[in-house]
Design a protein around this nucleic acid. Structure first.
Lengths: 153, 153
DNA sequence: AATGTTTGTTAGGTTAACCGAAAAATTTAA
DNA sequence: TTAAATTTTTCGGTTAACCTAACAAACATT
């Protein structure tokens, strides 16, 4: 239906605003700039664009908020982010690296693949007991060997 | 040491040249253009750039080839691509979608995460027998239930 | 070898997303 | 409540990667 494709950059801004708004009630240009590591003029410019697109509410020199549409997209991106981080942590990556990858992958992955990864995370989380294969996998990473392949004694 | 970061676009061009060269001995501007879905002038422009960077050999109106450096990068990207496709197929994605995701993710994923995914693919491929958990996972995707969680009879 | 077709390059243009410097608005504080 | 400090915007630039239209080179055919 309403599946307009936004740039990585647009998604990053919306996600940033969403994230900042969870902690501070007034989101300012400078908050977004420092969060994203950009300079204020870039933020002003992007806010103008997002505002025209109906994704944020922002008047000159005022505070920033997400419109319902902006919020919906921010939540979608943020949810991809969380799934990706969980997935990578499952594989035993540090959270730090997991975050770096998630921030990139979240913008390019298809919905179908995203769903699969989400299912995988759920599959593991909802398993009745901690899955053995994950332990075996981690063992394989260290040693290059399958635990099942016992050498003859 | 020599870990210069190239744009997704540069990586795509190198990968395309590498791919085309596996089938045809003479890689031309138009081959690259149609492979990538770009117009010839864009290709000419990029070839100039890649040539200056020492990644391809190309003289006006001539054929294109990868330098050793270009080849190394092309192979790295292509190998990421293959690992990603294998991984996604493991999760039961169609090859078509797997390809789409791989083409995007290959440019943004960190080396560490790439290695983990590669290990996962190897872990499954080299398992002594087809891993049960993968069947269970696919069952979980369909039904939302863990096969182990048997209901009381 | 002249000519027409195909292919590749040049030239000029667009868009997205960043930047720094300077100007303007807002906020703080004397 | 005015002046100073801070924040935000405006303005003008830059870069990467695409494009179209026009031109030039290469190729293929007779």
């Amino acid at each position: 239906m309403d599946k307009k494709k936004f740039s990585s950059s647009v998604e990053d801004y919306l996600e940033a605003i969403y994230f900042i708004a969870k902690k501070k009630d007034r989101v300012k240009t400078s908050d977004i700039a420092s969060f994203l590591g950009h300079k204020p003029p870039s933020v002003t410019e992007m806010l103008e664009k997002l505002s025209k697109e109906g994704l944020v509410k922002h008047k000159k020199y005022g505070i920033v908020s997400l419109t319902p549409r902006g919020m919906r997209i921010a939540k979608e991106v943020s949810s991809k982010h969380m799934v990706l981080v969980s997935f990578l942590e499952l594989l035993g990556m540090d959270r730090r690296i997991a975050e770096i990858d998630a921030c990139k992958i979240e913008h390019v992955v298809t919905r179908k693949t995203m769903n699969r990864l989400k299912k995988l995370v759920e599959f593991v989380q909802r398993a009745p007991k901690k899955p053995e294969w994950l332990e075996h996998y981690k063992h394989f990473i260290k040693t290059g060997e399958h635990p099942e392949c016992k050498k003859k004694a």
